[in-house]
Every structure is written in structure tokens, then in C-alpha cells.
């Protein structure tokens, strides 16, 4: 019961806090066939950011960036956004997991 109360109150607190997506910079890229139109996304270090992925293919895709803790499915011909926490400078790979050998890009944090 305690757990339930805890989880419920956590969820309620969470849902009542305002979405602050507007404070954050969004970087956009599009997956078309087997490639990302923007395959190098440059972001400043130490700041959270949002990646918006448009999937221009009919097939679904899954945006995956292990080090950025991103793993999110995107339906065909639609878009998703993912929040990434503040990162240290570095070059981080992102892929379409469903065709990860070819569909690659990098987030360059500097």
C-alpha cells in the first residue's frame, strides 16, 4: 500500500509540474531511406537538449544512442522528440537501430 501511495504521489507531483521543454534547444534531423539528413549535430557541453527526429520512411525506426541513454521508436512518416541530459564534451553515435550498420549520425558535444 505504501509503495502504491509513494508511486501515486510521485506521479502526481511529476504530472503537476510544468513541462519546461521551451527552455531547451531542439536539434532536428530527418531519417530518409538509410541516412540522417543531418548526421552531425553540434551541441554545447553541460546543457540538456532535445533531438527531434523526423522519419520520412514508411517503415518504423528506432532512434538509439547508447551513451545518450536514448532509445525510442518512431512510426513511419512521423516524428519524435527525445530529451538528452547535459553531456560531457565528446562524440556520441546515434543510429536507427533497425538498420544500425548504415543509418548513423553523431552528436558532437563541445
Amino acid at each position: 500500500m505504501l509503495t502504491r501511495a509513494l508511486v501515486l504521489s510521485l506521479t502526481l507531483v511529476a504530472l503537476s509540474s510544468p513541462l519546461r521543454a521551451e527552455d531547451i534547444v531542439t536539434y532536428e534531423t530527418t531519417l530518409k531511406d538509410k541516412a540522417f539528413t543531418v548526421s552531425e549535430i553540434k551541441v554545447p557541453a553541460g546543457k540538456p537538449f532535445i533531438i527531434k527526429l523526423n522519419n520520412a520512411n514508411a517503415a518504423a525506426a528506432e532512434l538509439e544512442a547508447k551513451e545518450l541513454k536514448v532509445e525510442k521508436a518512431v512510426a513511419g512518416n512521423s516524428s519524435i522528440v527525445v530529451r538528452v541530459k547535459a553531456m560531457e564534451p565528446g562524440k556520441y553515435l546515434f543510429v536507427d537501430e533497425y538498420q544500425e550498420d548504415v543509418a548513423k549520425g553523431y552528436v558532437i558535444v563541445e
Binding site: T11, L19, K52, A60, K72, S78, S79
Partner: peptide
């Protein structure tokens, strides 16, 4: 799966995360 697109667009684009949570 059929509604992934619409779910994704809820809650400013974070519908999937809120659904999973």
C-alpha cells in the same frame, strides 16, 4: 504499434515516456 505516431505526439512529444512510466 498502430497508434505509436499519435501516442508520441501527446504531452509535447513525450507521450510514450509518460505511458511507459
Amino acid at each position: 504499434a498502430a497508434f505509436t505516431g499519435s501516442l508520441a505526439s501527446l504531452f509535447d512529444g513525450f507521450g510514450q515516456e509518460i505511458f511507459n512510466a
